[in-house]
Design a protein around this nucleic acid. Structure first.
Length: 513
RNA sequence: GCUCCGGUCGUCUAGCGGUUAGGAUGCCGCCCUUUCACGGCGGAGGUCGCGGGUUCGAAUCCCGUCCGGAGUACCA
C-alpha cells in the first residue's frame, strides 16, 4: 500500500515553526516513499475560525517549497478537504449514527453548567476529571427517548470500554497502554452538529486512506480515544507518529522572545527555505549517521521513523544562522541574484522590517530597510556592478537581509564614516599624502584589477618606507568604506572602479580637512 | 489531583551490554590574511538527571526517585 500522509491544521492563526516541522516530516516521508501528501483543513470549531489562516498556511508552505498532491486549493479524489464542507455533506453524521445504532456511542444531555459542577466535584474529591459516564452512558432507551422528545440539546459521546487495556503503538515511543476507565468518554458530535477533532480527524484519515499520522506529542493523551474509535469501526488504524515539541531557548514553549514563531517571519528575515527545512528537520530527527547539511533529496531518502526522537528539542537560532550562511555561500551568482530580487520585491519583507517590535539580536531594521532599498534600485540602474558586489559579501553574511547593510557602502556615493574608524585610521601624519597620491594615481584609469590595486598600494608603501602594510591599508579602507572591516581591500577597489575610488579618496581628504 | 510522555557536552544529536561516550553548533586558540568574515587545524566543555539492582561488564536492561513537559473542553 502506498504511503499517504496529511497535514491537517486548524485554521485558527499563523503557521509557526513547530507546525512547519510536522509538515516537513510529512513531506520528507511522502517523498521518500513516493507517497502522497494532502492538506486537510480542520475547521470544525466555528468560534476559533480565522478566515486568513488557510491562506497563511498555503502561502507559507508555498514559500518553503512544499507542495500538496491533494487539498482544498488543488482538489483531489477525496474532496472536499475542509471538514466544514464534509460536515455539510453529511459524512460524519452517518458514522456517528452507525456507532449510536451499535451502542458504541450514546447521546448525553448534560448542560455546560452541569458538566462544570461535575468537574468541580471531581476536583474537590481528588478524582480524575472528565466525563466517565455521567447520567447518560448507561441510561435506558426510554430515558434517552424522553430527553430527545423534549428537544433537549445533546452531544454524542464515544463509549470507552471499561475493564480493558487500550493498547496502541507510537512509532517513536513504542507500545503505549491505558486502562479503559482512566479515559473519559470524548464528544464525537457537538450540540451544534459539528464533529470534534477526535471524530472528524479519525473518520477522515480512514476515508482518505491515510497510512501514517504525524502529529505533535500533545496528542498522546487523547490517543486512546482514537484507538477505541478505530476499533469501534473495525478499521485498521494508520501508524501514529507523535513528534516531540519544539521549545524555545528557555525550554518553554516557543514564543516571540526567542526568534520568530511565524514561518513567514523567517522568510522576511532572509532565511532560505532549504536550510530552514534542513534545520527544522534536525530538531527531533537525525539520519542516524553524522550527516547534517543535506539537500531536500538527501533528506527525503534518509528520512525514517526510527530516527525520530522522543524528547523535546530547542530551537537554536545560532545554528540556523550557520546553516543559512552555508546555503547562501553555496549559491551561484545567478541564484543569489534571483533570490535577493525576490526577497526584496516581496511586500512582506518590507512590512516585516517596518513593523517588527522585537527585531532579531544584532539586527537594525531601519538600516536593513535602507540597504535593501538601495540594492533594489541598484539592481535597476547598475545591474552589472551589483553582480560584482554580491560575491564579495556572499562570504560574509548569513541571511538575505544582511546583504542590505553589507552592500550599502558599495552603493552609496557618500559613505557614512564610522567615527571610531576615522579616529583610528585617519590619525597618522602620512594619511593625507597617502590619500592624495592614491587619488592622483587612480585618475584617468578605466579599470583596475585587484592585482593592480595591490601593486599600487604596496608600491606606495615601500616607496614611503612602510614595512608593515596595515597603516597604509586601513586609511584606504576607511576612505573606501567608512568602516574598519569589510571584504578584501583590493577586490573591493577593483569592483568599485577608478571613478568611484577617486571620488572616495577626495571625499576622505575633505573629511580630514 | 488524575492519566500520560520525556531526561547524553550550553544547544541539536550519534549511541541500542564492552567506545578514550562520536559529530555539529556556539565558545576559546592557532593558521590563512590588509581588517571583519569565510575556510583549515586544534582546544575546553558530558560523573550519559539521581539512587539501587541484573551482569564479569551498563548511557544502553529492570525497579525506584527527582526534575521538566503534555493532556485533563461541546479547542484543535
Amino acid at each position: 500500500m502506498s504511503v499517504r500522509v496529511r497535514f491537517a491544521p486548524s485554521p485558527t492563526g499563523l503557521l509557526h515553526v513547530g507546525a512547519l516541522r510536522t509538515v516537513v516530516f510529512n513531506d520528507l516521508f511522502a517523498r521518500g516513499h513516493q507517497g502522497d501528501l494532502l492538506l486537510r483543513i480542520e475547521d470544525t470549531d466555528r468560534t476559533r475560525y480565522n478566515a486568513d489562516s488557510e491562506k497563511e498556511f498555503i502561502d507559507s508552505l508555498k514559500w518553503v517549497g512544499i507542495e500538496f498532491d491533494e487539498g482544498p486549493h488543488v482538489g483531489g479524489a477525496h474532496a472536499p478537504y475542509r471538514q466544514s464542507e464534509r460536515k455539510e455533506a453529511g459524512i460524519y453524521q452517518k458514522y456517528a449514527d452507525q456507532l449510536l445504532a451499535e451502542g458504541k456511542a450514546y447521546r448525553a444531555f448534560e448542560t455546560a453548567e452541569e458538566l462544570d459542577q461535575m468537574r468541580e466535584f471531581q476536583r474537590i474529591n481528588k478524582m480524575a476529571t472528565g466525563y466517565f459516564g455521567g447520567d447518560w452512558r448507561d441510561a435506558s432507551a426510554e430515558k434517552t427517548e424522553a430527553a430527545l422528545a423534549e428537544g433537549k440539546p445533546f452531544v454524542v459521546r464515544l463509549k470507552i470500554p471499561h475493564g480493558v487495556k487500550i493498547k496502541g503503538v507510537d512509532s517513536v515511543r513504542g507500545n503505549l497502554e491505558w486502562d479503559g476507565e482512566t479515559v473519559d468518554d470524548p464528544v464525537l458530535i457537538k450540540a451544534d452538529g459539528m464533529p470534534t477533532y477526535h471524530f472528524a480527524a479519525m473518520v477522515d484519515d480512514h476515508l482518505m486512506g491515510i497510512t501514517h499520522v504525524f502529529r505533535g506529542e500533545e496528542w498522546i493523551a487523547s490517543y486512546p480515544k482514537h484507538i477505541v474509535l478505530f476499533e469501534a469501526f473495525g478499521w485498521t488504524p494508520p501508524v501514529f507518529v507523535h513528534c516531540p515539541v519544539i521549545v524555545g531557548t528557555d525550554g518553554k514553549k516557543l514564543s516571540k522572545r526567542h526568534g520568530a514563531t511565524r514561518v513567514l517571519d523567517y522568510a522576511a528575515q532572509g532565511y532560505l527555505p532549504q536550510p530552514l527545512k534542513n534545520f527544522v528537520a534536525l530538531i527531533g530527527w537525525s539520519p542516524g549517521d553524522e550527516r547534517e547539511v543535506m539537500n531536500d533529496v538527501d533528506m527525503a531518502t534518509a528520512f525514517n521513523l526510527k530516527g525520530i526522537q522522543p524528547s523535546p528539542g530547542r530551537f537554536d537560532m545560532e545554528k540556523l544562522d550557520w546553516m543559512n550562511g552555508l546555503a547562501i555561500r553555496a549559491m551561484s551568482i545567478d541564484e543569489l541574484e534571483a533570490a535577493l530580487k525576490q526577497f526584496i520585491a516581496d511586500p512582506w519583507t518590507t512590512e516585516y522590517w517596518t513593523t517588527v517590535e522585537e527585531p532579531p539580536a544584532g539586527k537594525n531594521p531601519k538600516a536593513i530597510l535602507k540597504g535593501l532599498k538601495l540594492l533594489e534600485s541598484a539592481f535597476e540602474t547598475q545591474p552589472e556592478f551589483v553582480r560584482q558586489v554580491l560575491p564579495l559579501e556572499q562570504q560574509r553574511v548569513n541571511t538575505l537581509a544582511d546583504f542590505g547593510t553589507a552592500c550599502e557602502f558599495f552603493l552609496l556615493d557618500e559613505v557614512e564614516f564610522d567615527s571610531a574608524a576615522v579616529a583610528k585610521a585617519f590619525a597618522g601624519d602620512h594619511v593625507k599624502k597617502l590619500l592624495g597620491d592614491m587619488a592622483y594615481q587612480v585618475s584617468g584609469q578605466n579599470a583596475m584589477t585587484p592585482a593592480e590595486c595591490e601593486a599600487m598600494v604596496k608600491d606606495w608603501a615601500s616607496a614611503n618606507g612602510f614595512e608593515k602594510i596595515g597603516p597604509v591599508i586601513m586609511p584606504i579602507r576607511v576612505a573606501m568604506t567608512g568602516q574598519l572591516s569589510g571584504p578584501g581591500l583590493f577586490d573591493l577597489m577593483s569592483v568599485l572602479g577608478p571613478q568611484r575610488v577617486k571620488a572616495r579618496f577626495e571625499r576622505a581628504l575633505e573629511q580630514i580637512g
